[in-house]
């Protein structure tokens, strides 16, 4: 494990903690896309199938359990928690995320590493994660006043995969490890989708104003 990989995992963990903090502290999920949260829950459920079959390390198991349980807890909160669910912008969160699931599944059927159930589902989770943030970014453009915790959550969520890309670059040059092209391409696409947000996040940080995405 290299520093980029560890920093990526910690950044991902911080993004989850920020979202849980926002929902717990404000008892509200305003500005959060339920659809993105559902897509992420699906990403973790299909990627960590080996949770009970292959033990890799304590760290690996603990992180997988954290990501699966937190994503399911957030989806449950936004759907069923009596207080939180009232603040969900149902009429603003209208991205057709079912198409993202269908598209990713078709991609996984055509382009898996190996044509086995596990590998197809793994490829599906990688392709789906690359586009899972789209409903959230669209919602962010529609909601004018988004609280800082939400923007920090999105910033850390976008940064984690960028750090993974650095991890693959680092391993390519130091371990001559080519990595997996599915991870490379999806990780790059995922990070590129955030570039626009990163730009406005940086601008808002420099001018210490609230983050505003152009309409």
């Amino acid at each position: 494990m290299n520093i980029f990989r560890f920093a990526g995992d910690m950044t991902h963990l911080v993004s989850v903690l920020l979202l849980l903090l926002k929902i717990y502290a404000t008892k509200s999920c305003s500005g959060i896309s339920l659809k993105t949260q559902e897509l992420y829950a699906l990403v973790f459920l299909t990627r960590y199938l080996d949770l009970f079959t292959d033990f890799i390390s304590i760290y690996n198991t603990v992180m997988k359990v954290i990501f699966i349980t937190s994503s399911l807890a957030i989806v449950w909160c936004m759907r069923a928690h009596p207080t939180v669910r009232r603040s969900y912008d149902r009429d603003q969160d209208t991205f057709r995320h079912h198409f993202l699931v269908l598209l990713s599944f078709i991609m996984a059927l055509f382009f898996p590493d190996l044509f086995t159930t596990r590998e197809v589902l793994w490829a599906f989770s990688i392709y789906l994660e690359a586009v899972a943030i789209l409903p959230q970014l669209v919602l962010l453009q529609r909601c004018r006043n988004v609280d800082n915790l939400t923007t920090h959550y999105i910033f850390f969520l976008g940064s984690y995969r960028a750090l993974y890309v650095l991890n693959w670059i680092y391993r390519y040059f130091t371990e001559k490890h080519a990595g997996r092209w599915i991870s490379w391409i999806s990780g790059l696409v995922q990070t590129v989708l955030y570039l626009d947000f990163f730009y406005y996040y940086f601008i808002s940080w420099k001018s210490s104003e609230k983050l505003r995405l152009p309409a």
Binding site: M1, R5, D9, H12, D50, D54, I56, S57, N60, M63, K64, F67, D113, L114, E119, W122, Y164, R171, E175, H177, G179, R180, S183
Partner: peptide, 10 residues
Amino acid sequence: AQDDSTKDEL
């Protein structure tokens, strides 16, 4: 195929 070194990636 999934060589072991990427297996531990999250």
